[in-house]
Simulated assay, not measured.
Amino acid sequence: MSLLRALIVALLVALVGCASRERPPAPPPPVVVAESTWRQVDSDIFAASQEATGEATGYARDLMQRWRGLVYQRSEDEFIPWFSSYWTRQWLTMKVTWYQLNAGDEKEAVVDRLALYLQEQYQERVLDPVAKQVSPDWIMAQTTQLYVRLLREQLQGIAPRYAVPVDQFATHLQGIPAIALAPPASLDASLYQLVSAEPIDSQPAYVALVERLQQARGGPGDWSADAGISSLARQTSKSLVAERSRGVAGTVSSMVGRVAGTVISLGIAGFSALVRENERPKMEAQLRNNLNAAFDEEWLDLLHNPASGVLAGVNHIAGQIEGGLADSVLQPVDVEPVLPTVVMPGEQPRQDEKSDDETLYRLW
């Protein structure tokens, strides 16, 4: 009988052991992050955005300096010799004649058409070839992507710094705007959506942002029709129209007859070519000064214009992030970091105690 009892006891013990092994482990207690800790997190995100903006600005300036050097060199090698040559001036004078035949007495229409032609030539001979190496459109895209990569690297260290759970940190980033192009709302992106996209230009809102900025005022690279270059082209057009109006060779031809006039015209053309060749260094120096001054004006606008320059993408994203964090960052932050508290089952989270000084600060 005692043997049977021992067997029953052993069986019960085994059953109890199996039941205890099959029981699922208790879930870990939830982690509650203090409000002051979230404010410190936001402050670090804000600072990370500003630091990334500074790095991106320096990078953009370096690339813009490279672009300017290439444009200067291309202008010196291709555009200025072409423009200042005698036969180019003759060709332009012929175009003025053709424009005048079609425009009648509308002198401004002739000037505008020739100015447009000169702008197109500058684009084709200088800007387009240089754009194969570097262009403002490319600089804007590269600068914006650098900003996002730097910000992503900075964000990776913030959650561990304050012992914030990864899932809660991700949720927090989803509540911070990064791109806002609505409507439609599908062209908006949170900070989490932006920094988690790999590659960066696979994020739809980012692609839409770059496209919109490149289309602004014809696109950051299509500036040859802007004020500086357009003014230079119009000045040149007016001088050519004035030259055509004086038309010494044409007047002589009409007075002495077609055949003799042709011979005289060729002689005058040869003489004018020699005169212009002697004047060419002075003409090229003046053209170089005017062209560089016009280009520098546009270069500075591309570098510093917050809405359409090469930093427009960075400015948009940083403005959204820092604007969304402004209220949190401006609140007072504890000097010592407040670590997350663990709430045991059945307990209520303890609210942070606020000092009298903090209460007065909030009221003020």
Rank of each mutant, 00 (worst) to 15 (best):
S49V: 09
Q50P: 01
Q50G: 05
E51G: 04
E51I: 11
A52V: 00
A52Y: 00
T53L: 02
T53V: 03
T53S: 06
E55K: 12
E55M: 10
T57W: 01
G58M: 05
Y59Q: 02
A60R: 02
D62M: 03
D62S: 10
D62C: 01
D62H: 04
L63Q: 09
M64T: 02
M64R: 00
M64K: 01
Q65A: 11
Q65K: 09
R66D: 00
R68H: 06
R68V: 09
L70P: 01
V71Y: 03
Y72A: 03
Q73K: 03
R74A: 04
R74G: 00
S75F: 10
S75K: 01
E76A: 13
D77C: 08
D77W: 15
D77I: 08
E78T: 11
E78F: 13
F79M: 09
F79Q: 09
I80P: 02
I80Q: 05
I80A: 04
I80C: 06
I80S: 07
F83N: 13
F83I: 14
S84V: 13
S85H: 15
W87V: 10
W87M: 12
T88S: 07
T88M: 09
R89E: 15
R89P: 01
R89G: 13
Q90K: 12
W91L: 15
L92S: 04
L92R: 04
L92I: 05
L92H: 02
V96L: 06
V96W: 06
T97F: 10
W98L: 09
W98K: 07
